[in-house]
Amino acid sequence: MYKSSPQFREIPVPRHRFSPLLKEWKKIYEPLVKHLNLQVRMNLKAKRVELRTSKYTTDLGSIQKAADFVKAFMLGFNVDDAIAILRVDDLYIDSFDIKDVKTLEGDHLSRAIGRIAGKNGKVKFAIENASKTRVVLADTSIHILGSFQNIKIARDAIVSLILGSPPGKVNANLAIVSSRMKQRF
């Protein structure tokens, strides 16, 4: 236990994530209260999740981990994927917009998003499995959850898809990179 004044974090809830938050609240609430010993409150009027350390909080970094966990959920990650942030130390979220890579509009933008997702999500799943990351496509924003090195692998694959590489070529490159990763460990 530590004796400093309580720390406080507020995470805004976007309008489109409010319903999933209500549905998954118990899964979000329990690890924060039971394992990190934080005080958690959903402020319905202000539409935000409020976190505060309590006198039982033992780790000073737990409030930041909790804030990152809730932010990951707000970005669109599954609760089970986001909960990994609480358990594993070296997980990060990298977010970027498709227009940061290349200025695309109209049908060109739609085709780029389609190349990233693939038919029935196959390309996205291939990127996730090869790089050991989780990817969320939210309109024109892309969010990647994983370790620093794995995020770079996934980001390089996604950028090449945005720039127009065919998914088959990107899959082949991912297979090469993942086989090199397996040889290292």
Rank of each mutant, 00 (worst) to 15 (best):
K45F: 02
W25A: 05
A84I: 02
Y2P: 00
L174A: 12
K55S: 03
T53I: 04
P167S: 11
S4E: 08
I142N: 06
Y92P: 00
V70H: 11
I83M: 04
G146I: 02
I127S: 03
A138T: 02
I83T: 04
F8D: 02
L137A: 09
S110N: 12
G106E: 03
D156C: 06
R134A: 00
N173H: 15
K26D: 01
V79W: 06
A138R: 15
I116Q: 15
K27H: 09
L104C: 07
E24T: 09
F77C: 10
Y92V: 02
M74V: 07
T140H: 14
L32K: 10
R180A: 03
S179T: 08
E10Y: 08
M1F: 14
N37T: 05
A126Q: 13
K182L: 08
K102T: 01
D90Q: 15
D89E: 15
I93F: 11
Y2R: 10
D97E: 07
S141P: 01
I144K: 10
K132N: 07
V170P: 00
N78T: 04
K47E: 01
V40Q: 13
I83F: 05
N150H: 12
P12H: 10
V70T: 02
S54Y: 14
I11E: 01
A46L: 04
L137P: 00
A172W: 13
D139K: 13
N78H: 12
S5P: 01
Q149Y: 12
A157N: 05
K132Q: 02
L60C: 02
K119D: 00
Y56E: 14
F125P: 00
A82V: 01
K45S: 04
D80V: 03
I98Y: 07
N120Y: 11
A172L: 13
Q39W: 09
R134L: 00
N171A: 15
H35D: 05
H35R: 11
T103M: 11
F18I: 10
L36W: 05
I28A: 08
G76F: 02
L145S: 13
L75D: 04
A157E: 01
K119M: 02
L161V: 04
G61D: 13
F8K: 07
I63D: 02
F69C: 06
L137K: 12
A117I: 03
R15Q: 03
E30R: 14
V70E: 03
E105V: 09
K34W: 03
V123E: 11
D156R: 14
R155D: 00
V135L: 08
I116S: 14
L75W: 10
V49W: 09
V170N: 10
L44R: 15
D94P: 01
G121P: 00
M1R: 14
A67H: 12
N150Y: 08
L91G: 10
V170S: 08
G76N: 03
V88C: 06
Q64V: 05
K3E: 00
I28Y: 11
E50S: 14
A154Q: 07
T57K: 14
K102C: 01
G146C: 03
L104G: 06
K23S: 06
H108R: 07
D89K: 15
S95M: 09
N150R: 13
V123F: 09
L163W: 08
S110P: 01
A172I: 06
A67Y: 07
R184P: 00
G121D: 01
L145Q: 13
